[in-house]
């Protein structure tokens, strides 16, 4: 039992040991430098995950088999800004977060919405596209500027959609409001263009697509329900997140993202991010 008797005599000398271990753990947890960014710089390329099943954001060109879309071009622009090659990996939509968490790729850029319930699992960039619920009116309409102006109006929605949910909510709030449900969002938007409805509540992607393709309507910002698309990185990759945000901020400022919207939707919306 000499060890026990030594401990009895010298336990005071050992007291700082747990404190040192605790301090070291705290340091490692809080201040350990993430090396992902250095690794990316070393290999000279950034791995981007996306699910090419959501045009115009990401899709496969049937003729050439190449990946195309808003997100594909934006990923390349981010790579250019950071001086990196972009390596694109296709992952199913439901696997995108896991791909980032499991470091299968460095970043997911795939029309992913910001989700406050996932902020402990992954890190989100600043937004590059507001895909939320928009108020759409006929071109030249000057009396409807916000949802509050919909009192007594006919509002077209895609039956069962988030626009439908919001219209039902507005009806309770405003009292007088006639909801006109349509089987598709295109038909709901056409009803506005053709004067069968005063306004339509539709998601931004559908609204901009219709506006650019058919004309005759306009989209009123801001979104009634915000759904900002963001890039997603591993929660530990703080340096990478900073670089992605820097690149996105640059692309926002230089008008590049607006030019992408114009290319893929045929319109240049005023407010592309919340």
């Amino acid at each position: 039992m000499p060890a026990v008797s030594w401990l009895r005599k010298n336990y005071l000398k050992l007291l700082p040991l747990p404190l040192v271990l605790l301090g070291l753990t705290v340091y490692l947890l809080l201040f350990r430098k993430d090396s992902t960014w250095e690794e990316i710089l070393k290999r000279g390329s950034i791995a981007v995950c996306l699910d090419p099943s959501y045009p115009p954001f990401e899709y496969t060109d049937e003729a050439t088999g190449e990946l195309r879309g808003f997100d594909v071009e934006m990923a390349k622009a981010i790579g250019d800004y950071l001086g990196l090659k972009v390596e694109i990996l296709t992952v199913g939509f439901d696997g995108l977060y896991d791909a980032v968490k499991g470091r299968k790729c460095d970043v997911a850029i795939s029309a992913l919405p910001y989700d406050p319930l996932l902020t402990q699992d992954v890190a989100f960039s600043i937004s590059y596209f507001e895909a939320g619920l928009m108020l759409v009116v006929k071109e030249g309409e000057e009396n409807i500027h916000s949802p509050d102006d919909l009192k007594g109006k006919k509002v077209a929605v895609e039956w069962g959609s988030t626009g439908d949910v919001e219209a039902r909510r507005l009806k309770i709030k405003l009292g007088e409001l006639e909801i006109k449900p349509y089987p598709t969002v295109e038909e709901a938007l056409r009803a506005v263009k053709e004067g069968q409805a005063d306004a339509c509540l539709a998601d931004a992607v559908s609204a901009y697509s219709y506006w650019g393709r058919e004309g005759g309507v306009k989209v009123i910002a801001p979104a009634l329900v915000s759904t900002p698309y963001v890039a997603v990185v591993n929660i530990k990759n703080k340096a990478l997140l900073g670089k992605i945000n820097e690149a996105l901020f640059h692309l926002r400022k230089t008008g590049y993202i607006h030019s992408l919207a114009e290319k893929y939707f045929g319109v240049r919306p005023a407010n592309l991010w919340p």
């Binding site: 699910d51 099943s53 959501y54 939509f93 895609e158 039956w159 069962g160 089987p183 598709t184």
Partner: peptide, 10 residues
């Protein structure tokens, strides 16, 4: 909106 086995809400 993005699942290949899904239908429109209506």
């Amino acid at each position: 909106p993005r699942w290949s086995k899904a239908v429109r809400p209506a």
